[in-house]
Each structure stands twice: as C-alpha cells, then as structure tokens.
Amino acid sequence: MSGLREFFSSLKGSPEQPPRTCKQCGTEIPYAEYVANHCICPQCGTYFRMRAVERLDETVDPGTFQEMDKKLKSKNPINFPDYAEKLEKAEKASGLNEGVVCGTAKIGGIDCGLFVMDSAFMMGSMGTVVGEKITRLFEKATASKLPVVGFITSGGARMQEGIFSLMQMAKVSGAVKRHSEAGLLYIAVLTDPTTGGITASFAMQGDIIIAEPKALIGFAGQRVIEQTTGEKLPAGFQRAEFQLEHGFVDLIEERSRLTYTLRKLLKLHQPHN
C-alpha cells in the first residue's frame, strides 16, 4: 500500500484516513480493513465507489505505475459561471487535478496503458481535460503497442464546458478507433455509475466490457426517463445485471476477482510468435 500512503500524505490535511461508514448498513469500517476488503462492506457486501488511487493500488503490480499528464487542469473554456470555484472545490475534495488518472503500469507483469476515473472529482464528468488525458493515453498506448485497461465511472459530459465537453466524446472515440486498428486490446471496466455521454462513447467501445455487480450503467438518466415517458422503471433497470441480460456487457466480475480476471485476459492477448 506504499502508493496509497504516498497519495494520501500528499492530500493536505488528511494524513490519516478516517474509517468509512457503509451507507447501506451503517457499519463503520477501519480504513485498513476497508481497502483490504476491496472497498466492500464486510458486513453487507455493498460496493463503495473506489478512489482512483485505491483502484490502482489494488490492480497494478506494486511500484510500476507511472502517471501521465498529472498536472493538466481544466480551464473555463466557455467562461461558465461559478465553474472556476467548482473546480477548486473538486480539487480540494478529491486531492486530484481532474476526474481521471492516466498512466502506464504492469498488471500481472504485462505492460498496459491505464485510465482510472474518479467520481470524487465532479462525479467523474468529462470536460476537455478528461477527454484530452484519455485521448493522450490511447495515443501513447498505440505508439507503444500497449493494451489499455480503463476503469470507468462518470456522470457523463460536463455541462460547464458546453460544446467542448460534447466534442470530447468524438475525440476519444477517434483515439480508441486508432488504437483498435493497430490490433491492440482495450478492456473497459464499468463501475458505478457509468452514464450519459460516457456510455455513449468509450465505455461501450471496449473489445471486452466488464461490469462490477449492480453498477448503474445506462445512457439516459432514470429521472429523465420517468419524466419523459411517465413509466415506472422496472426493478434493476440499467444495473450491470440488466446490461448483461440485454447483451451489452461481456461479463460481470466480483471486485475481489477483477484483477485476476484482467491478468488472465491480458495474458491471453499477449502477442505470441
């Protein structure tokens, strides 16, 4: 957990991580136990939303992660009111410069490009910097012939950046396409929540799409659907299990087995000669 300690000590004012409280059953979980249990409540099994650094720590071979474009920060391209303050607040709350962490690492000894979205930064919404960082990651992976593993969580496009956010969907799609045409593997891991413009772009463009159990995955927001159609949503609507049943994800994997499954899939796609 050296990476974790280093990360958290870099967060101002939070040298020690407080215990986590489960929203479902109210259990208080000491932080060490929480991460040892893959950020899942040991009492009731509820999945917490993982921070990017927790995901990296759990997924990559120790000491192999090299972050890219860490310092890129959003500007305010359409001068949207209160956006600069929101960004500042998100930075403080998350300890990140933006809603995605990108870089290269080894997983099970295999070199990969990785992007990990973090919902603690404005719900992982995609503005120009999130789009740019993921695009650069795919471009780097294409040039270096690396597979890409993406951990996705996002409320969708970030409205405070207007049309620039929308266009990131096309920009990232172009980079994913070029990576794919180079014969390289992209595994998308969909975690709670994956919605809106992210579902309508790179979340659904993986060669292999893995979902975490019960993750919310969909295009339109549930409230919007209810308001538009006046229909009552069926139980389990837009959950990972619903998407599996309708054929949109390849598999659902328990978080405790996810790294193992990624290693297997990456190994199988290693070039052989």
């Binding site: 096309a170 396409k177 790179f202 979340a203 659904m204 295009f219 339109a220 659907i225 159609t229 609507f237």
Partner: peptide
C-alpha cells in the same frame, strides 16, 4: 436521442458510441 426504457434495453448508449467510433 430518445429517453425511454425500450431504447435503453436496445442499447441507446452503444448505438451512439458505435456511430462515433
């Protein structure tokens, strides 16, 4: 894009993602 239960069941997000790609 239409917001509805059936559209979601038939992969509205995927349909858009595939067009972009």
């Amino acid at each position: 894009a239409y917001c509805g239960i059936e559209a979601e069941k038939r992969g509205q997000g995927l349909a858009i993602a595939e067009n972009l790609y």
